[in-house]
């Protein structure tokens, strides 16, 4: 926007969809999306710092409103995990689910910040390209999904043993018959590849699409006063609807995490 050149829809869109990068070495891989990283870590510190602050002063007596709010969230997650995961959920799975839900929800919620005002604010801070929503960066969703995937493999090995897991890969879901082994392996391979893909792309796609729609609505402002008013109404409507998507996607991501980790704990 402040590029000085004529503003076209393409440049408007691409401006909003370009990350602030920092190069760590040679090659495209060694770049870092500074905005994604800073925003996500900032949000993480804020939300988990808040949780920690509340929890440190937690009382087993009558809770205050702040503690009641946190307990509500925690018990909501705990309830979901309890219905899916049958083991000692308090050791890892439930707190991990809480982490996923809170963090993803916070990152998704950044989508509701008014994009152009935020761009102006960042511009004032000297940041020409700065994307507020870490979950519109595929690196974030892949990072989360792959971490869950690695945890899944870790728990598979931990619970069933390397032999048990291999047995499961080779002999399920179709049967023990050696003739079926290749089919089983192929099936499991597809499953293990599709899990992180669908897990990460679902979140990424929804939030990214939401942002694109905000940008498209924002372009109404280029058509004059009537267009601006119309765009405002549309933007408000989409933002209200987006509250649902933001929460729902965070919930789905959390539930899938719990389901994948539960499946890793259960033998067939």
């Amino acid at each position: 926007m402040a590029s000085g050149t004529e503003l076209t829809p393409t440049s408007y869109m691409s401006h909003h969809l370009t990350n602030l990068t920092s190069s760590l070495g040679d090659g495209a891989f060694w770049t870092l999306h500074v905005d994604t990283l800073v925003m996500s870590i900032l949000l993480g510190i804020m939300s988990f710092g808040f949780l920690w602050w509340v929890v440190r002063g937690a009382t087993s007596g009558v809770p205050g409103k702040r503690q009641a709010f946190v307990e509500l969230a925690v018990e909501f997650i705990d309830e979901q995990v309890k219905s899916t995961f049958h083991g000692d959920r308090h050791a890892f799975v439930a707190p991990a689910a809480l982490t996923v839900f809170v963090w993803v929800l916070m990152m998704n919620t950044m989508d509701l910040l008014p994009i152009d005002i935020m761009a102006k604010v960042y511009e004032m801070l000297g940041l020409h390209n700065w994307r507020s929503v870490p979950t519109t960066d595929i690196n974030t969703t892949f990072a989360l999904a792959l971490s869950v995937w690695l945890l899944m493999i870790f728990f598979n090995v931990k619970v069933k043993g390397l032999g048990g897991w291999t047995h499961e890969l080779v002999c399920t879901p179709f049967g023990k018959n050696p003739l079926l082994w290749p089919v089983n392996i192929l099936f499991n391979l597809v499953e293990y590849v599709s899990k992180p893909l669908s897990h990460s792309l679902r979140l990424y796609g929804n939030i990214y699409a939401g942002e694109i729609i905000f940008l498209l609505i924002g372009m109404w402002a280029a058509t004059g006063l009537a267009g601006t008013i119309f765009g405002t109404l549309l933007g408000a409507g989409w933002a209200i609807f987006h509250i649902l998507i933001v929460t729902l996607q965070a919930f789905i991501f959390m539930m899938l995490t719990v389901v994948y980790l539960s499946m890793a704990h259960e033998s067939h």
């Binding site: 990283l37 993480g44 991990a96 990072a143 971490s147």
Partner: peptide, 24 residues
Amino acid sequence: INFTLFSQAMAFAVFIWFTVKFVW
């Protein structure tokens, strides 16, 4: 896909560890 993925994964691991250890 770039190095951001690994940094995000590390941040995620730290947050999970923090929640498991200090929040839950």
